[in-house]
Design a protein around this nucleic acid. Structure first.
Lengths: 187, 187
DNA sequence: GCTTTATGGCTATAGACATTAGCCAAGGAG
DNA sequence: CTCCTTGGCTAATGTCTATAGCCATAAAGC
């Protein structure tokens, strides 16, 4: 038998594809193994267990979001940067609802680090808006909370009424931006 | 053997106690049965399956929140009502993190109805603030998104930094309130 | 009070998964 | 060409959901 040539990263790739197509409930080691053309126990040569696979997926997702956020902040500053960051965040969740839903919030160090990288993008946006220190911490929390909450509710069908969610999100964005502390560079 | 005298409601009671004490991962039919002093299959006489139990729990939680919200809105109106509602929501989640985390967002009719009841509380707060129709829909979404996002991040340890979350939440509340459309009864 | 019957409990069983142990071949290092 | 690390495999265990089918309890009817 030729080897399948797996690796931890390849296992995560397969798992993410499965996740995208069939949702979080379908994410089992058996299904991942099947899709990778391998017997289930073989996965343990690359990943400690299912819990670790979930952690690796979470890190992947957070890093993807960090990358998108970083891109979108290039060449933008002040309120514009924050608007763009919020829009990009929401868009990622709408495009990848299952990935986002699979994200885990836990005291795992690897996750904490990835989360810190993502939070740093928000911090950068705050800094370019003239917010530093305490103010930046509180402002970041508010922006994250708003966009996270909206994205979760929207992507999980929590907004039942027919009204356009675009408009709701625009309102939320402007609420947040106009409520930010003064700072230096309000544009 | 004397009967245990279970019922669907009693099963949910036991499940919620288990959930509170040991978290969502420990919520298995086997564990619920053990705690109820009954063999696992006996639960199926009261609940169709684990999925239905989860739905029943979600409905319970939503109804608890609806009740708390309704209480807190009595005798309050305008911005004050919204502030109080947001505070009560956050408080519930902080007091019952596992219950809140166990809530499911799905096309189940029973859940949709409970969710609608909860959303109606937000609507009532908006109405007393002078918001109606479209405006009320968008405003409700924004308030729910903000408070849901904050509560989730806070209760799952998503705010790593040491700064007080009280202050962050106060900022978020004021951001939201001051950003609401004009309406009639802005207090 | 006695019979009947629906119901709530039980045991046995099957099937999906995660996980561990231990074997064996592939394929790179020397 | 040989050695040995590594990545695959099969076998087996334990946990959990779920179903089938049995039996006693307790309530309802007489």
């Amino acid at each position: 038998m030729p080897r399948a040539g797996l690796s931890a990263a390849a296992v995560v790739d397969v798992a993410m594809a499965l996740l995208d197509e069939e949702g979080p409930a379908a994410l089992t080691l058996a299904a991942v193994a099947g899709r990778a053309g391998v017997a289930t126990p073989s996965l343990y040569k690359h990943v400690r267990n299912l819990a670790e696979l979930r952690v690796l997926i979470s890190v992947r997702v957070m890093d993807e979001m960090t990358e998108r956020g970083t891109e979108v902040l290039l060449g933008r500053s002040g309120d514009d940067g924050i608007r763009a960051l919020m829009a990009a965040y929401r868009q990622y969740v709408l495009e990848n609802p299952h990935r986002y839903a699979a994200m885990i919030q836990q005291p795992e160090p690897a996750i904490a680090e990835a989360a810190a990288r993502l939070v740093n993008v928000f911090f950068a946006a705050m800094r370019s808006r003239g917010l530093e220190g305490e103010d930046a911490v509180h402002a970041t929390r508010c922006v994250r909370a708003a966009v996270h909450g909206f994205a979760v509710l929207e992507s999980s069908g929590g907004f039942g009424l027919p009204q356009k969610t675009e408009e709701s999100f625009a309102l939320l964005t402007e609420m947040i931006i106009s409520g930010l502390p003064a700072g230096q560079g309000a544009s």
